[in-house]
């Protein structure tokens, strides 16, 4: 077992533990903070798997931007965690059934995978230069589409956020 493997297992345990904590917290702030830890772990894992640029993006975008956005929203929306209702038992059972089926399928697929997938993967790194070159060489159109998507998301968010306010203002003006 190489040192990489040790790191992998440690990071994997960290990610799973943090995510597990995140999904079970009653307070959403706690959940988001746990998830930040999980995303940091993911970033480390990316780095370990030879993807330094996605690792950095993971930290900047996921752990930084998205999670902070979550924090803002969580703080904006005040909900008493003690007052939330629980689902009926049947719902939990059904969810457990489906998740169990997925889990069994995943384990079975892992066990049944071919010999090549059982070989330890060789370590390799795609330098940010290579990665960027590859990306803009092959996927320039997709990049443009992604940028468009982000623009649309931006406008949509603005619309959703402003629409109500605008109407309220109009109402107020009417009064």
């Amino acid at each position: 077992m190489t040192i990489y493997a040790v790191f992998f297992y440690i990071i994997a345990a960290l990610i799973i533990a943090a995510t597990g904590l995140a999904i079970t917290r009653k307070h959403m702030v706690h959940a988001v903070l746990c998830l930040v830890v999980s995303f940091f772990g993911t970033a480390l894992l990316f780095y370990l798997l030879g993807a330094p640029l996605p690792a950095i993006f993971q930290v900047i975008i996921y752990a930084g931007a998205i999670m902070v956005l979550f924090l803002f929203i969580v703080m904006m929306i005040r909900i008493d965690p003690e007052k939330t209702h629980r689902f009926p038992l049947g719902h939990y059972l059904a969810a457990g059934g489906i998740c169990g089926a997925y889990f069994v399928a995943a384990v079975l697929l892992t066990l049944l995978s071919g010999p090549r997938a059982r070989q330890p993967m060789p370590a390799a790194t795609a330098s940010p230069f290579d990665f960027g070159y590859y990306l803009f060489d092959r996927h320039w159109l997709s990049i443009e589409m992604i940028s468009l998507l982000l623009l649309v998301a931006l406008i949509g968010t603005l619309h959703l956020g402003l629409g109500r306010v605008g109407r309220k203002q109009k109402k107020g003006g009417g009064q």
Partner: peptide
């Protein structure tokens, strides 16, 4: 979430 559950179940079936 019940709908979501159905979606998951269907996707699972399709994957199989």
């Amino acid at each position: 979430q019940s709908k979501l559950m159905v979606v998951f179940a269907v996707v699972f079936g399709l994957t199989l």
